[in-house]
Design a protein around this nucleic acid. Sequence first.
DNA 1: TTGAAAGCGCTAACAA
DNA 2: TTGTTAGCGCTTTCAA
Lengths: 343, 343
Amino acid sequence: MRTPGQVSNNITIFEVASQAGVSYGTVSRVLNNDPHVRVETREKVNRVIQDLGYVVNRQARSLAGGKTHVVGILVPDLGTGYIGEIIQGIDTELQLAGYDLMLYTTHRTPVLEADYVGSLAQGVADGLILVLPRHPEDYIGTLRARHFPFVLVDHQGSGRDCPAVGAANWQGAYNATEYLVNLGHTRIGFITGWMDLGAAVDRLEGYKAALWAYHIPFLEELVRESTFHQLDGYNSAMDLLNLPNPPTAIFASNDVMALGVMDAVREKGLKIPEDISIVGFDDIPQASIIHPALTTVRQPLRNMGSVATQMLLELLGNPATPTKRIELPTGLVVRDSCRPPRS
Amino acid sequence: MRTPGQVSNNITIFEVASQAGVSYGTVSRVLNNDPHVRVETREKVNRVIQDLGYVVNRQARSLAGGKTHVVGILVPDLGTGYIGEIIQGIDTELQLAGYDLMLYTTHRTPVLEADYVGSLAQGVADGLILVLPRHPEDYIGTLRARHFPFVLVDHQGSGRDCPAVGAANWQGAYNATEYLVNLGHTRIGFITGWMDLGAAVDRLEGYKAALWAYHIPFLEELVRESTFHQLDGYNSAMDLLNLPNPPTAIFASNDVMALGVMDAVREKGLKIPEDISIVGFDDIPQASIIHPALTTVRQPLRNMGSVATQMLLELLGNPATPTKRIELPTGLVVRDSCRPPRS
DNA sequence: TTGAAAGCGCTAACAA
DNA sequence: TTGTTAGCGCTTTCAA
């Protein structure tokens, strides 16, 4: 039973109401910018809110059916700086809009992914940003059925009809490959990412397309399926370098693997870029720091985060917003890791 | 008024109760591991929970005075990888304990810092981890007064009597300086971090102490006060290198600044480590990736996060746990950025 | 434009 | 060991 008089340590809406000499319903209206409040009343209430240092209780608001002003974000991990960049874009935008951030790292466990989404959608958050989801099939149905607002970042897999933002992976890979071809390379090794990720597939396709466009035969032996991890980049590169007729350039599907490639090249006693050219993908902060600086395909990570957030906020404001899929452009960043092949 | 029968889309404790043929209070007991439940009853309820896919509503639980199973964490930003490492330590530990993570980035705004702490402490989270807080004075009092559990990470400033975990900054700086001295350096430049951070002060003191121990005069002209940022590291290094009698080694108070130092050194046409030795602090992932690999003082960042989390969880379990301040050891990681000075 | 009151889903204190 | 019930602080009808 409601007992307005009886309050805890914290300042509640009742304190404010009694101080302001209005009913607590009115205070609630002021809090929620309900237009049906006289300006003077609103001002009076706001003044009391200020004076008392009142802050809404999120749980209560959420429980009563209001908004939580929390956006949940699901990321696979925080290891690579790659995700960090995206989060920064999200965070900045959310802060501007007055939303808080609930972060979950799934560590690539499908179970966790689905669990988190379930609990988040249950009222913890108003909306969800799914970064690099690996098994969205498991819960996108639920989310949809509940009309729960969400946006995918960098997925491009199944669920082509979900709100999503990604980067032009195909185009980026095409451009990078073209660049190598124009330098004179014809034996270009390629190291893929997880092939269950749409982004990884697109990059491989871009690479293939560029080769075809320049009438360079696509050779399976120059392609290694890998995982986006540095160590696997290293191993794949070793593999390629041990070929009887090794490539003169290696294109890694992300920068982290490109770092691994560099390790491998050095270990073989080869020089970058004199003996072998290397291209990465992402343009993580390290790419410009290492020596030689890495030529790579820039993904606008921060932007992707910020655009995704804006899409979500729009959805939050108007659930009927038509589904958008945005693809941000990628760009080749030419640094010092490529050179024409030795002839 | 309570209306058990009338339920929303979501499965609530009432569904479970009626399906299991018990009262909903009993279900609550099962949920909270209350020992006063018959084993069979517990099993029956648990089965129904499973079947229905019931998940507790966090807001309701929290509102009713229960735990939220959320730990708030406050970080200055996510830019450097430094914080990312700490968060990973926290995250892993929290996951193990079944807690969720609410992340706030303050972007070094004192107002935000205090605001967030206020709202978090109001019931959003059960406990708080404050990473690298810059103005804890503003709210530690409040937290204390409310008996709200919190742990500081890497602070070491005021509030010596708060639960905190840090690293042996003094020792690390001492060891690194000693290493340079043993290589034969006598003119060792030092670039500080924000001097309002205890860690930064400790590092400077460690540097001074090592010099004194080896009877090398401490020269103000070789010290530059800086900010932990790469660009400022660059500028400070430029400044030092432009000295009529420049140092033969530079010790930067963190790795990020050391990267800036490297830029400056290269821009002056000098070679690392032949012409000038460089030491950093932190051992962020980049440190081992760059070329030449950076000799640095390793901070056990992940460990710091994990230890802080364990302390918090202990506090959560037993608020009467005596205040601990833990200092984790640092260690010199010798790589390729140092060499004896040219004679 | 305002007030009154019915819940949101749960915990915990009190009875039984 | 279990059932019952009073709130937790708020939003949102429904009246006035």
